[in-house]
Design a protein around this nucleic acid. Structure first.
Length: 898
RNA sequence: GGUCGAUUAGCUCAGUGGUAGAGCGCUUGCUUCACACGCAAGAUGUCACUGGUUCAAAUCCAGUAUCGACCACCA
């Protein structure tokens, strides 16, 4: 077999293994399997989406869980798909239409526009799916779903109709969050409050009954003045009590409006008097309702002023109108002052413009199964990790508001409601139609369109995107009214992995839908990922340009490098500050493993050496040690996975391979692989290498799937046609058949040699001899096994040799160290600068004395000795003895120099 | 305003009562026949602050400060 190239090149390897997995149908879930099921549904990315680091973290975790579950013998379904993302997608296509053809969606009409969106989806919609494949995701692509698939859409309509029949869906004219750019209503969750530096305008209204007397009010929105229908004061406010029931003059358009009393008004804020614009403020709307005030809408849907009575303002954009209205007030002498004022303004999540509270006819949903949902999370039937998110969930459930589910868009699931045509025509359009206007026969609410469509008009609106997303776990697995083997096997799902930012949007709603429509909770565990920030702690965003392109990172460091680097440092339950250096580490790690295997290949046979530790007579301490550590790794992996501690899993894998396997084991057994070594030693060492590496690559596989597949294959660790990803983890320990006492002894010896070697290297470095290979060490005393391991010790210490001479009398000043392998000296042959050495020793003595003092102080404390655990006290004693011994030794060396 | 987090080496992060850790970066020395994407040695910390509990606190408790998230908001 060929020698491996010098450096690991992920690009081709990753691509070809991904294809091999696809060809081997490794990702396909078999509902007929009798293995235990494990399932995840992917949080469907927007069909317009481009992969960002959040996706990488999120899907890597899912892939790790899925691959680990396969290794544990589960039948795995990881169901992928995309979300139609109503507003985002429609906006994108509208922009394209405007740029390319100079037309709006209304110019070409609903049907033609939707055709364009579908075209667009076919052309550009799959990008993120391709990117997920590049990352190595083991999704069952045969079962990819889209929220607007025909079968899926049937579920959406049926759910709507069922909830309507249950009385939970209703239609009404309400104050909603209106996006003046997307021209649609939004749910409360889609409104993002942002702190704004605004201005608070103080103005005055003249009293009708007592001209010359004014009532002062403060507002941030003078442009809504034309919609004012009252001024409200707090009934307890003594300053204004006398005005309640009187009237004031609205400047433009001129009108006399009442002064009303309402508890909502805060006497402390502004002037304590509040102008009431019920059409354009949620609180004002409620005050208006309580006081039976008129509602005057003074905006067009796009938030330009609709007020022909005031021509100066009519048609202006709301922010232009604000300035103009202020100027007009000033001119009229009604403006008192303007103050800088910080307040929160709700922005539309998608269009990023201030939303406009607006009254309109919309569909609302009273959430189903809220009690069960709150209970499931509070009591842990669904476990949230980190657990604190359960509290966030709970507080949202407590204050839950009806969900505005209708959107004035075209791209989405059209509301499955039809009105009898003649009724609509009689009432002049569906927009103002209320359900009360219709008798039962005039209304058709169903997943199925009416049999005589020519007599009906369908509601023009579509549903909120999340109204389809909340059905995702089950609507992807089964068709409406059909038995599904897939759902039978894999629903409810096992784990859900998503960001905490969509607990309300998605997670809580899925639980409600799962409960209401399947009678079951849709998943057992929810793992919330970190939010990824840039190195300065800012959220990743397009506008800041601080979001690295994961594809670039994969080009540079490989998909495995990106996955491992991210996973090893991603904290559990805290934000992650992304640093490209982490990814670089991941790549370096891949290269390290690769080179360990390359070394193995260069040292011996091309095929795997069959080996059983219990049948081997020539196991050295290093062999036993690494086998034992590999067994320990298996156990530690298990417990870290059990708690979803992915960073710990990664750290364990890293430490084992680099710190134990390469730095210690491989260095210690290098001698066994040289030409002069015996055939038996060589075979034993190669056998242990293969045994440990083959298993290690399995452990590593969920994190670095491509590379582990490549190496397992090239090292001959797999049977013909076998994949690491399909191979179950072994259930028995490597050393299960070996006497534990023997293992313990071997591990202890290996540890002693490693520690001794470190001390000898240290000794060399102190005397600036680190690079010298010709140093000869002399052991004056030592354990029985020293002679057998002396060559290895010498090798590890980078020296010519370690000889044992009981009769050795060191010259005065010969440096030495007390090691687990005995008292070992390093004759210097007069190479060292005496003065430099003196000052070095003085510093050393000072340092050791400090440590001795510390230990003595502790042991002199009676309470410590009496109360601390015995092993803690004895460890402290040992430490003291050690330091004292060292001190005496160093002092002796110092004396010999002067 | 409410709730919940965070604060440990220059940076990113581990560390849940008993000698402060890793990787990167830094210093020094090595192209040693797997790897310079590497090897070896080293320097670097008032564990945010103030109290408390304890023989013993980065760790537990209380408070303070700073940063952040979410919720609710006064126009």
């Amino acid at each position: 077999m060929s020698e491996l190239p010098k450096g690991y090149e992920p690009a081709d390897v990753e691509k070809s293994w991904y294809q091999a997995w696809l060809d081997g149908k490794c990702f396909e879930a078999d509902p007929a399997s009798d293995k235990p099921p494990y399932s995840i549904v992917i949080p469907p990315p927007n069909v317009t989406g481009i992969l960002h680091l959040g996706h990488v973290l999120n899907t890597t975790i899912q892939d790790i869980l899925a691959r680990r579950a396969r290794q544990k013998g589960c039948e795995v379904l990881w169901l992928p798909g995309t979300d139609h993302a109503g507003i985002a997608t429609q906006t994108k296509v509208e922009r394209q239409l405007r740029d390319e053809e100079g037309k709006t969606r209304r110019d070409i009409g609903r049907e033609a526009f939707l055709e364009k969106v579908w075209d667009w989806k076919e052309k550009h919609g799959g990008i993120i799916i391709q990117q997920l494949k590049r990352l190595g995701c083991s999704c069952d692509w045969e079962r990819e779903r889209f929220t607007m698939d025909e079968d899926y859409s049937k579920w959406v309509a049926k759910v709507f109709a069922d909830l309507f029949n249950e009385g939970l869906v209703y239609r009404g004219k309400r104050m909603v969050n209106w996006c003046p750019v997307s021209l649609t209503a939004l749910s409360d969750e889609e409104v993002i409050p942002k702190k704004q530096n605004s201005q608070l305008f103080y103005m005055k209204y003249e009293l009708v009954e007592t001209p010359g007397e004014f009532l002062e009010v403060a507002t941030t929105r003078p442009e809504t003045l034309m919609g004012d229908v009252a001024v409200a004061v707090n009934p307890k406010d003594e300053r204004y009590g006398k005005y309640v029931g009187k009237r004031v003059k609205r400047p433009f358009p001129p009108a006399e409006i009442p002064v009303v009393a309402d508890d909502h008004v805060d006497p402390e804020f502004g002037t304590g008097a509040l102008k009431i614009t019920p059409a354009h403020d949620k609180a004002d709307f409620e005050i208006g309702m309580r006081n039976e005030l008129e509602i005057i809408d003074i905006f067009h849907p796009d938030a330009t002023v609709n007020c022909p009575e005031v021509p100066e303002l009519d048609g202006l954009d709301r922010f232009v109108a604000r300035k103009k209205a202020t100027a007009m007030l000033e001119e009229m002498g009604l403006l008192i002052k303007v103050e800088e004022h910080e307040n929160n303004v709700g922005f539309s999540e998608r269009a990023d413009v201030p939303i406009e509270p607006r009254i309109s006819m919309q569909w609302f949903l009273k959430y189903p199964a809220t009690e069960e949902t709150a209970k499931a999370v509070a009591e842990g039937d669904i476990s949230y990790r980190p657990a604190r998110w359960a509290k966030t969930h709970g507080s949202w459930m407590d204050g839950i508001q009806d969900w505005c589910v209708s959107r004035q868009l075209w791209w989405g699931h059209r509301i499955p409601v039809w009105y009898r045509k003649e009724k609509v025509e009689a009432l002049q359009g569906a927009e103002s139609l209320t359900l009360e206007d219709l008798s039962a026969g005039d209304l058709h609410v169903s997943a199925e369109p009416p049999a005589d469509p020519e007599n009906w008009v369908q509601d023009a609106d579509v549903l909120d995107t999340w109204f389809s997303s909340w059905l995702w776990p089950f609507a992807t697995m089964q068709k409406l009214d059909e038995e599904s083997d897939l759902a039978k096997k894999f629903y409810p799902t096992t784990d859900l992995v998503t960001g905490p930012d969509i607990i309300f949007f998605w997670v809580a709603r899925m639980i409600m839908a799962g409960y209401r429509f399947q009678g079951e909770l849709p998943f057992k565990n929810v793992f919330f990922t970190s939010i990824i920030r840039d190195i300065q702690g800012r959220k990743m965003s397009k506008s800041l340009g601080n979001s690295p392109d994961p594809i670039d990172l994969m080009d540079k460091y490989g998909a495995d490098g990106l996955r491992f680097g991210l996973m090893r440092t991603a904290p559990i339950g805290a934000d992650l500050r992304f640093d490209e250096a982490q990814v670089e580490e991941g790549r370096n790690f891949a290269n390290k493993i690769y080179n360990a295997c390359r070394f193995r290949r260069m040292a011996g046979s091309d095929s795997r050496v069959d080996f059983e530790p219990s049948a081997c007579e020539s196991l050295r301490p290093y062999h036993l040690d690494i086998l034992a550590k590999c067994d320990a790794l298996a156990i530690n992996q298990e417990s870290a996975y059990a708690e979803y501690r992915f960073n710990e899993v990664g750290q364990q894998l890293y430490d084992f391979l680099w710190g134990e396997f390469c730095d210690k084991f491989l260095e210690a057994v290098k001698g066994d692989l040289r030409e002069e070594a015996s055939e038996e030693q060589r075979e034993t060492t190669l056998g242990v290498f293969d045994l440990v590496m083959a298993r290690y690559l399995q452990f590593l596989h969920p994190y670095m799937p491509h590379m582990t597949e490549e190496l397992s294959s090239r090292m001959g660790y797999l049977a013909e046609g076998e994949f690491v990803m399909e191979k179950e983890l072994p259930k028995t320990a490597l050393l299960s058949a070996v006497d534990p006492l023997k293992v313990q002894e071997g591990s202890a010896q290996a540890a002693a040699v490693y520690e001794s070697a470190a001390k000898l290297r240290n000794l060399k470095a102190e005397y600036r001899l680190a690079a010298r290979k010709d140093v000869q060490f002399i052991a004056k005393s030592g354990p029985a096994w020293l002679e057998a391991e002396a060559d290895t010790l010498a090798l590890l210490a980078g020296s010519q040799g370690v000889t044992r001479e009981e009769a050795y009398q060191p010259e005065q000043g010969t440096p030495g160290a007390v090691t687990p392998a005995g008292e070992i000296f390093m004759p210097l042959d007069g190479l060292i600068d005496v003065e430099a050495e003196k000052s070095r020793l003085d510093k050393e003595i000072e340092k050791i004395q400090k440590e001795v003092g510390k230990a003595k102080g502790k042991l002199g404390n009676e309470k410590f000795v009496a109360n601390a655990k015995p092993e803690v006290v004895s460890a402290e004693r040992e430490r003291l003895t050690e330091w004292e011994g060292k001190l005496a030794q160093v002092q002796e060396m110092r004396r010999s120099l002067s």
